[in-house]
Design a protein around this nucleic acid. Structure first.
Lengths: 361, 361
DNA sequence: TTGAAAGCGCTAACAA
DNA sequence: TTGTTAGCGCTTTCAA
């Protein structure tokens, strides 16, 4: 009645020790593979453990080693392919070192992010990877740093914090991409991003701009200046969160008196909404409007025409973030403060010349 | 030097108790909001905690409550939008009850899945959600059940296990979908799935077939039989894992002597590869080949022509799985053993009539 | 309502 | 190489 079905009460080291007729300490040493144990004892303990179907209680173990072998990951939206792919990079890398991952989704909400960081700290994760929603409220990140547990930022750097960040360099590629659009004859170029207004955009002049939004904007501005123009600020929309707002924004951009002739989407989720709106407006790419997006999703190649994209090595970015974090945790030599990956502009068919304006010039 | 920067050594209940001049027990009660505490003491303790920036050690708490407020989730591939969307459903639901989620990715590998379940058990999660890779090796799932901690299966049911499962009903919709293809004149219909051969397919005749693969095949067979034909077994390919195999399979299906005139993809990742291959073969949808896929990804609507899909309520399935699991954990009334959602066939432009065969009938 | 003291399951000094 | 004995930080009897 109690032989094979090991219900309820867990088997502990004490049980194993008794079964193997050794002290609890010896049993623990054998099971935990630490300290000195004679071959004799080791095999007896292991046999007893197997017979009893002993499983260690990792909570108890963590409690006195101070290590949980767990990483915390905080992202804005796991549904965003950028994050789910990065997550796989993180997860795969963590697994090779025997670490597991607790994932928390914030919906790009700063309060939720703060709560998430707090929870992870309380759960005693060994370190965490955060894609911060804002560089303005970073108290919780500072707490993380103060706790002494390593923190690595993903996709966005916050200079004052003094922590490592892993991300793709965005200003040069943005310059290249926008220059390509300008060379194709576009001057009315729209940019639609999901990050909250004020969370990152305020630091236009100040700061190092080590985040996707300001880097891309900087590259865009530089491209326009280089071409002897200034960027069309009225076409740069940084709020866009949920579907509805994006549609409205795109309609505005496309139907206003001096409309955008090209649109850049800051990520694939935004891109889907932009494309959907363009479709509903019955406009054609690239005849009526040119289009470009960040992140090389597989479907971009399958569209008619195929979409021109900026491809960043997302999986690798995630993997590198995990690798950096693990280096800190395991006391290995660590790479420079900000690890930068490079992106590529993949030219395809979604960019053409703007339509002749009805009158003027 | 040690005032605001709370470095290293954590503040414990003992510290708070001392600061508040009460016993450790009273401090713990006040902080944990349990037991009886006078208003007087409670406020003193809370004030002390705030002053000391006390943060509970959830590990220690879990260790003697036996509850970790953590759910484990084991999926085949978080990069698959099906799972990442379901994950959001799980994560959102868990959060409303104050639970966090540990995510483990198995790459649809049974051994990795077994290891994952073991790790989660050792970490003392309060319950877990698993999308099992196979119904043949389920020892680890049985261990989970034996451990007494609730388990809920996602997207696949394993009848003998006696645990709850949440999934979309697939046979009827498969029947409907294939019938639609047959009515359009197709008899050579290919089906490409990612699940390993033998993991699920073997139970053709036996078992309840409560898993996506066999349900879909059953519906497909029924559709053919109803139309007085038998299903084209040579066009049903169940192995397909990574990109390369899928391409080869699709080329085979499309270039063999008596080729498929329509292809069904079992999920969106497969669909992308199939579409890519069709594109490289310079074949046109639906003129050269008709196409249909499971899961209504946003991009399916944007393709030219828009893709006909079977849409299942993925987010809701994830949310329901979490809700069911939480019900078990919290001792609430639980729903029936297998919770079934319904899917819809969304007819769009990717299905046409097969090309006239060069000769014969 | 309070406090002292006994665990939770494990690791880690310290002796033997 | 062993065993004894303390803890880790918290909850939870049990008396007071």
């Amino acid at each position: 009645m109690s032989s094979s079905s090991s219900r309820r009460r867990d088997v502990t080291v004490a049980d194993v020790a008794r079964e193997a007729r050794v002290s609890k300490a010896q049993a623990a040493r054998a099971l935990g593979a630490y300290g000195a144990v004679s071959e004799e004892v080791r095999s007896r303990v292991l046999a007893a453990a197997a017979a009893l179907e002993y499983r260690p209680n990792e909570l108890a173990r963590s409690m006195n080693t101070g290590r949980s072998n767990t990483l915390g990951v905080v992202v804005g939206d796991i549904e965003n392919p950028f994050f789910s792919l990065a997550m796989r990079g993180i997860s795969d890398t963590a697994k090779t070192e025997g670490f597991d991952v607790i994932l928390i989704n914030t919906g790009e909400d700063v309060a939720a992010e703060a709560e998430a960081v707090r929870v992870l700290l309380d759960k005693r994760v060994d370190g965490m990877i955060v894609a911060p929603a804002s560089h303005l409220s970073v108290g919780h990140l500072r707490d993380a740093v103060d706790s002494g547990r390593p923190l690595v930022l993903l996709d966005r750097q916050i200079p004052d914090l003094g922590v490592d960040a892993v991300m793709a360099k965005m200003d040069d590629i943005s310059f290249t991409a926008v220059t390509h659009l300008i060379d194709s004859g576009h001057t009315r170029i729209g940019y639609v991003s999901s990050l909250d207004v004020g969370s990152w955009s305020s630091g236009q002049g100040m700061g190092l701009g080590l985040n996707p939004v300001s880097e891309r904007l900087a590259g865009m501005r530089r491209a326009f200046h280089t071409a002897g123009m200034s960027a069309p600020n009225d076409l740069i929309r940084l709020s866009a969160g949920k579907p509805q707002p994006i549609r409205e924004i795109v309609e505005e951009l496309l139907l206003c008196p001096d409309p955008a002739t090209a649109i850049i989407a800051s990520d694939s989720l935004i891109a889907l909404e932009v494309l959907h709106t363009i479709q509903q407006l019955e406009m054609r790419i690239p005849d009526d409007v040119s289009f470009m997006m960040y992140d090389d999703m597989p479907w971009a190649l399958l569209m008619t025409p195929p979409i021109t994209v900026v491809a960043q090595p997302v999986y690798e970015i995630g993997a590198a973030a995990a690798k950096t974090l693990l280096a800190h945790i395991l006391g290995r030599p660590v790479m420079p403060e900000t690890l930068v990956f490079h992106s590529e502009l993949l030219l395809r068919g979604s960019i053409g010349s703007p339509k002749k304006v009805t009158e003027g010039a």
